[in-house]
Simulated scan of single mutants.
Amino acid sequence: MDTLGALALATEPPTDQLMLRPPVGQREPLITNIMWRNLLIQAIYQVIVLLVLNFQGESLLSHLEHDYANKAREVKNKVKKTVIFNSFVLCQIFNEFNARKPDEKNIFEGFTGNYLFMGIVSITVLLQVIMVEFLGNFASTVHLSWRLWLVSISIGFISWPLAFISKFIPVPPTPFSKYFKRIFPRRRSSPRSEENHEEGAHGGGAHEEETREDSHQ
């Protein structure tokens, strides 16, 4: 899934707006502040949802499906884990669209023209359906009803409006890495090492002076 997601984002063609951006230096951080903002918001959302499903999933699914309450404890646990797995994967698939335009509100601009992206996303969705519905012994999953599929899809879909709202949160121009350097400065060398460094510098200077005197003689 991660490989297909990275391949889908790598097929995104360059746009004319890239020429309007200032050049990026070699020492600039690879992950910008905008990326950090989007990553943190999506990560917090997914962690909250997955924790709720893990600890309260059985009670929530019992209210959703009447047949779920009559199933055995082991079957309930497998269904809950399958829903958690399915929701997590669908969150990543929906988030691939957000990653296309991390600093733009319209994440679907140019989507229909990128056939590779659409094909890779379609293959990812197809593989997920096959893994959940037909490869239970291999992936340790069980069959999900259409209601549980709607729950998983809804959880993944929420990442779109969440990403749109997060675009209105401003980020500072200074990279976050520089703030961490101010809070956690580099460890200074010990006094002994500084003395050795100074002695080496003085010794090197004296050696250079002796060499110069010998050359004059």
Rank of each mutant, 00 (worst) to 15 (best):
I84P: 02
G57R: 02
E194K: 15
I107T: 09
I183E: 00
F94M: 09
Q128Y: 01
E199K: 13
N38I: 07
Q26L: 13
L9I: 09
P13R: 08
N95G: 14
N33Y: 05
Q42A: 15
A8E: 03
L39Q: 08
G156H: 03
Q217A: 12
L40W: 07
A206S: 11
H143P: 02
F108K: 00
Q56S: 12
H197M: 10
A99E: 08
I84T: 00
L61V: 06
R73W: 08
N106D: 11
K81S: 12
S87T: 05
K76W: 03
A163H: 06
F157W: 11
P161T: 06
G205W: 11
I34S: 10
L51M: 10
K178S: 10
S177Y: 10
H216E: 13
Y68L: 06
P14Y: 00
R192N: 07
T141R: 03
Q26R: 15
I93L: 15
E199D: 11
L116A: 15
M118Q: 14
S59W: 09
D103Y: 05
V151M: 08
I34F: 08
P102E: 06
D103M: 07
E104F: 06
L135P: 04
P161S: 04
S87F: 02
H143K: 14
I169F: 08
V75R: 08
N98R: 04
H216I: 14
Y45S: 02
P175S: 02
K167W: 02
Y45P: 03
Y68E: 04
R182K: 15
T82Y: 02
R147A: 09
I120P: 00
V171T: 15
L150I: 13
T3G: 09
M118H: 05
P102I: 01
P170R: 06
M118R: 09
E209W: 07
V47W: 09
E109H: 13
T211G: 09
S122W: 04
S166N: 12
A10M: 12
T211M: 10
P172K: 06
A10C: 07
L148V: 06
